[in-house]
Computed example of a mutant assay.
Amino acid sequence: MPLTSAIAAVGTHLPPRIRTTEETERRLREGNPGVELPVGLIRRMTGVDRVHEREEGEQASDLAVLAARQAIEASPEPVDLLIFSSASQDLIEPATAHIVSAKLGLGVPVFDVKNACNSVLNAVQVAHGLIVSGQARRVLVASGETPTSAVRWQVADRHQFVRSFPGYTMSDAGAALILEASDVSAERGIVDLAFSAASHHWSIGTLPMGGSMRPRDPDATYFDIDGRALQRAFMALGPELVTGLLERNGIALADLDLVLMHQVAEPHLGPIADRLGLGVEMILPTVAQHGNLASATLPVQLRQALDRGLVGEGSLVLLVGLAGGISLGAAAVRL
């Protein structure tokens, strides 16, 4: 029978340590007395109430392992490939996938997939392709995001604060998916995927540290993002990628049980959803209570939707990824 890949398990880890937006603003005001920072601005502009912070000394691999153990416990059959997929990493070399594999005690091939906040969705794309082509049977996709390490707490002026602004709403998190081979006749699995990029926008948002451009510049260890330009770039993408995926598979919006979409800020959610041809009422909101979870966003939303009974076996879900660079991705999945 022709093969597809199906999601066998979802694991997530949200660090219990919380930093509220009020705490963020208080820390910024106390640490930067010479810079005027309006009270309540971050909450008004982003809708984010709080973010998750990992414990001191906890690495991206640790967060990925905590989520992966949940997924493995739920679906304990052996995996034959591990893909670490995250904007974050423990080291430049070796691949963080090796560290995750060692901590889990696995003895399988590994590699990293990295594409900002679309890292997990792109890893699903790769895993799906390997399964359909017969090169893998069960793939563990694991993500550990640690963006709070790149938050700039000392700002020289208002301009630097604005360029650092999106970092104040980013959360640490772990996420994992197990994808396994499934007969197409089983009517479960990935229906289709689609991806696009507008790479001329790459400089809108950067975290330069450790790269060849600025390998040892201490100032390069912080986010530098033009939030408004990023929103404009996403709005310019158009709906064709999402609507095309749905149309070629005969899927109407009414057929979808839920839409999971990467979320940067609450006010952006509606306009971007409308621009992509989706209704905001179809989307599970998470950014207010959990912040920007980077590439862990979609697995966290899926886990929450399953736990809350919003979706279940047989549900048709659309995953939409938005990432710096910039990239757009979509996947229709039958659970």
Rank of each mutant, 00 (worst) to 15 (best):
A8G: 12
L14Y: 00
R17Q: 12
T20H: 03
T21N: 11
T21D: 13
E22K: 02
R27Q: 11
P33E: 14
P38R: 07
I42N: 02
R43T: 13
E56D: 15
G57E: 12
V65L: 12
Q70I: 05
I72Q: 02
F84D: 02
D90V: 13
I92D: 00
V100S: 01
N115D: 02
N115M: 03
N115Q: 15
A116I: 03
V120Q: 01
L121H: 01
V124F: 04
I131D: 01
I131K: 03
S133M: 10
V139M: 10
L140N: 01
S143H: 06
P166S: 11
M170P: 11
D172M: 11
G174R: 09
A181H: 05
S182G: 03
S185R: 05
L193H: 06
H200E: 15
H201R: 05
W202Y: 15
S203P: 11
G210R: 02
R216D: 14
I225M: 08
D226A: 10
R228K: 12
A236Y: 07
E240V: 05
L241G: 04
V242Q: 01
T243M: 09
I251P: 00
L258D: 12
Q263D: 09
V264S: 11
V264K: 00
P267W: 14
H268W: 12
L269E: 13
V280I: 09
V280G: 00
E281I: 02
A288C: 08
Q289A: 15
H290V: 09
G309V: 06
I326S: 10
